[in-house]
Simulated assay, not measured.
Amino acid sequence: MTTAQTYAEFAAREARGVSPAYERLSLAVSGDDKVLALLDTLPPAKRQPNLLFGVVRFLGGPVEDPAAFHHYTVTNWPRIEAQMRVRATQTNEAGRCAVLLPVLATLPQPLALLEVGASAGLCLYPDRYAYRYGDQTIGAGEPVLDCEATGSVPPATLPDVVWRGGLDLNPLDVTAPADVAWLDALIWPEHAHRRARLRAAAAVAAADPPLLRRGDLVNDLPALVAQAPADATLVVFHTSVLYQVPAPRRATFTELVGRLPGHWVSNEAPGVLPYDDLPEPPDGAHHNVLALDGRPLAWTRGHGQALHWFA
């Protein structure tokens, strides 16, 4: 897929109906030969829309108006390029816990959670957040995570989490203002509710920090697994992470995680972890596939805003 096609697809499948600003911007970039030529000087994994738009926002550039964005990007490309080469999309959306919760609540308790691609670890606290599935609320406090759920009954209780660890190539610290600023820049422009959610989830994590380790998802996973308590059910999980991992390395990881004790919960795009005989997604928007131990269970939206159970 060309860079132009990547941006056009992002506009149609991910931003449409979710972020008008990013839909406009993605469509504009898909037809902007000058910006596309600049992007094509980067490695393929570094050309993605969320990374470009996040870096421009992080540097204080405009993302609402395509013409202003073009001028800023072309004028400031050396600064933008430098940031894009060293940063990654580490969207740490606590709302994703709403689609993980129905699986986590059914596993033998208590749980030892280990997230691959943990960013700042905000998805390691599914037991500390409150949830609203339609008119049913679970838990108390902030943030409250809203999720449209169909095809399944929401869990009645929260999981019992006794250990939480995370692995990331560049773990972020919610007590560091620069790291929180990067997480904020990755949130789409119109999503004020997600910014409020980030602040509330960051406060939860800062009060009881998780064990975060810098490392590779294959080489360093076994050592972190060894630190989990033996008397808890180990759950290795990840969401929208493996698309950044080259296919051969991805295959090595899935082989490794399949041999580990406990359970494996994945929430990735269907092209990243392919499955046989998936039903049609509920609409033309971008969806992930939620799976337990390699068995697909549900379609999910990227920020945890919807869960369509089909298992």
Rank of each mutant, 00 (worst) to 15 (best):
G271W: 11
N267F: 01
L198F: 10
T254C: 13
D277P: 04
V265Y: 02
N288A: 11
A205I: 05
A205L: 07
R199A: 15
D220N: 12
L211G: 01
P209S: 11
P279K: 12
N219L: 13
G284K: 05
L198Q: 10
A205D: 06
D277V: 07
T239M: 01
A196Y: 00
A269K: 02
R259E: 15
W264M: 05
H263F: 09
Q227G: 02
R259S: 15
T239L: 01
L260W: 09
P210I: 07
L273I: 13
A196H: 10
V241I: 06
L198M: 12
F237P: 00
L242Y: 04
H193E: 14
W264C: 04
A207K: 09
Y275L: 09
D216C: 15
G284E: 13
L217G: 13
L273R: 00
P222W: 04
A226N: 07
T254S: 09
V289T: 11
V257I: 11
P209A: 10
V218Y: 11
G215R: 14
V272I: 08
A206V: 02
L234Q: 12
A203L: 11
Q227L: 15
A202P: 07
L278E: 11
L211C: 13
P246F: 12
A207V: 06
A228K: 09
P222Y: 04
R249C: 01
P246M: 09
V272Q: 02
R259G: 15
V272C: 00
L217E: 14
T233N: 05
L198H: 08
A201P: 09
R259H: 15
H263Y: 08
A251H: 08
T233K: 06
P210V: 06
A251D: 15
T239W: 00
L290N: 02
L224C: 02
V235F: 02
P274H: 05
D277Q: 14
V241E: 01
V241H: 02
P246T: 13
D276Y: 00
F237W: 03
V218P: 13
G215N: 15
L212P: 00
T252S: 15
N219Q: 14
V225Q: 11
P279M: 07
R259Q: 15
A226C: 04
P209E: 07
V235R: 06
A202C: 10
L278S: 11
H193V: 01
D283Q: 05
G258Y: 02
A226I: 04
A196K: 14
L211F: 08
